[in-house]
């Protein structure tokens, strides 16, 4: 897309999240190869890409979970890797594929997250009750998280990312395994949060969801950002899904698996 030799522009200090030249290599594999991305403040930002595109790695480096080999991440103008404490106070993070302290009950886990942020006991108690109600988990407040279903686990993790009222929410695959009703409730919560001035970054590979829900989108594949902007800018006249397939490629135009079509009972 852009000339790789050209130096990246300086970080956008007004952006909710501004990534510049992020690189990460795991052994032989380069997971993220120079990601530049600006998430405008107050946007509902979707990050889409095929499996193994570097979405999780990029978001981990943008939220302080993974130290980049090169590059910088700014959260509302604060350099995350230079001043992690200030930057992390403004961030709420839902990482994908990590455990929770699941021997705690749902209410205990939220309380733990709040107290770790240095919040007041009464505020924590009030917000714990509110979040449990919003996530429809009041009845399971005293159930151990280890006994939660996958969707409930996702919801309690999301709640613990929101308890300190962050200004930027970074959610890695927030709707995976969540039932449609809960997903709709979570979308309402997130939309209200954006209307109130917050910024949400979600990663997903459900294009339709991103097209309906997000104001901005970035397509990432092979460790690079292929396109970024408002949803309408990126998709043009096409649906986001078609545009995505066009950008990423990899569709097979073959007759493949012809034996699967017939109902002939041969093995």
């Amino acid at each position: 897309m852009t000339d790789p030799a050209a130096p990246p522009p300086p970080p956008d200090l007004s952006a909710a999240l501004s990534l510049r030249g992020l690189w990460k290599r795991f052994g032989e594999k380069i997971a993220v190869a120079g990601v530049d991305l600006d998430v405008p403040s107050g946007s509902f930002f979707g990050l889409v890409g095929p499996n193994g595109a570097g979405k999780t790695t990029s978001l981990s480096m943008a939220t302080g979970l993974l130290r980049p080999d090169f590059g910088a991440a700014h959260v509302l103008g604060t350099d995350l890797w230079a001043h992690p404490d200030e930057a992390k106070a403004m961030l709420g993070v839902l990482p994908d594929g990590v455990r929770l302290f699941d021997r705690l009950t749902g209410a205990q886990l939220l309380t733990y997250a709040g107290l770790l942020r240095g919040m007041d006991r009464d505020v924590v108690a009030e917000r714990t009750a509110d979040l449990l109600a919003a996530m429809d988990l009041v009845g399971d407040a005293d159930t151990f998280v280890v006994d939660y279903s996958a969707g409930m686990t996702k919801k309690i993790a999301l709640a613990s990312a929101m308890i300190h009222a962050p200004r930027v929410l970074v959610l890695d695959e927030p709707f995976e395994a969540v039932d449609p009703v809960s997903a709709a409730n979570i979308r309402d919560i997130l939309r209200g949060y954006v209307d109130g001035g917050g910024t949400v970054v979600v990663s997903s590979h459900v294009m339709d969801l991103v097209q309906r829900m997000c104001s901005h989108v970035a397509v990432i594949a092979g460790g690079h950002v292929l396109a970024a902007g408002t949803v309408d800018q990126v998709r043009g006249e096409q649906s986001l899904e078609d545009r995505f397939v066009e950008l990423v490629g990899g569709r097979r135009e073959s007759e493949g698996l012809s034996w699967l079509r017939s109902s002939s009972a041969s093995s």
Partner: peptide, 11 residues
């Protein structure tokens, strides 16, 4: 185990 991610995310 990876539940430590909470401590990292919060700092």
């Amino acid at each position: 185990n990876t539940a430590f991610a909470l401590h990292v995310a919060i700092g």
